[in-house]
Simulated assay, not measured.
Amino acid sequence: MDLTTFTEEIELIAGAGDADDAFDLMRRLLRSGQTGWAVAVRRGVSGGKLDAEALLESGRKARRQAMEAREQARRELRAATRDLIRHGGGNVITRGARELARFI
């Protein structure tokens, strides 16, 4: 499940769902190997009752983590591209890195 689908499901369940809906989402996440998100959804159910705010917070946290990971990957790609341009010589890979640098 991608991040957009996950957050949409979280919002739907928090708005009009119940604990069973949250457990269903948790099981689907576990089947797809997304254990971290499944645990976050499970924490949104306490005593058999849905805690909508905790569930929404898990969606917000997943979004923040994804944005931070994207930003870190972009920084690392920029650093690697700069290094390749500076020290790569005049080969085809370096020329490709120069073209890539315009977009990152």
Results as ranks from 00 to 15, higher is better:
residue 26 M to L: 09
residue 10 I to E: 03
residue 98 R to S: 04
residue 9 E to V: 02
residue 70 R to I: 03
residue 9 E to W: 06
residue 24 D to G: 08
residue 90 G to Y: 10
residue 26 M to S: 14
residue 15 G to W: 04
residue 32 S to N: 10
residue 24 D to S: 09
residue 35 T to R: 14
residue 11 E to P: 03
residue 61 K to Q: 14
residue 62 A to T: 03
residue 49 K to R: 10
residue 19 A to E: 01
residue 21 D to Y: 00
residue 7 T to N: 09
residue 13 I to P: 00
residue 9 E to A: 12
residue 59 G to T: 07
residue 48 G to N: 01
residue 34 Q to L: 14
residue 10 I to L: 04
residue 67 M to W: 15
residue 60 R to T: 08
residue 84 L to C: 05
residue 24 D to I: 03
residue 19 A to D: 01
residue 91 N to D: 15
residue 19 A to N: 01
residue 12 L to H: 11
residue 29 L to H: 09
residue 27 R to L: 10
residue 72 Q to V: 04
residue 96 G to H: 08
residue 99 E to F: 08
residue 72 Q to P: 00
residue 46 S to K: 13
residue 8 E to D: 15
residue 1 M to I: 09
residue 82 R to F: 11
residue 19 A to T: 02
residue 75 R to G: 08
residue 69 A to W: 02
residue 36 G to M: 11
residue 64 R to T: 14
residue 64 R to D: 14
residue 18 D to A: 03
residue 13 I to A: 00
residue 82 R to A: 13
residue 5 T to V: 11
residue 33 G to K: 09
residue 32 S to E: 15
residue 101 A to N: 14
residue 100 L to T: 03
residue 14 A to M: 03
residue 19 A to W: 00
residue 37 W to K: 15
residue 88 G to C: 00
residue 85 I to K: 04
residue 24 D to W: 06
residue 83 D to T: 13
residue 71 E to R: 13
residue 61 K to T: 14
residue 80 A to R: 15
residue 27 R to T: 06
residue 89 G to V: 03
residue 49 K to T: 05
residue 51 D to N: 10
residue 15 G to R: 10
residue 98 R to C: 01
residue 54 A to M: 06
residue 34 Q to K: 15
residue 24 D to V: 07
residue 41 V to E: 07
residue 40 A to L: 05
residue 70 R to Y: 04
residue 67 M to V: 15
residue 82 R to L: 13
residue 28 R to N: 07
residue 4 T to A: 14
residue 40 A to T: 02
residue 57 E to F: 11
residue 46 S to N: 10
residue 22 A to H: 01
residue 37 W to A: 15
residue 77 L to C: 10
residue 87 H to I: 07
residue 40 A to Y: 07
residue 70 R to L: 08
residue 84 L to E: 04
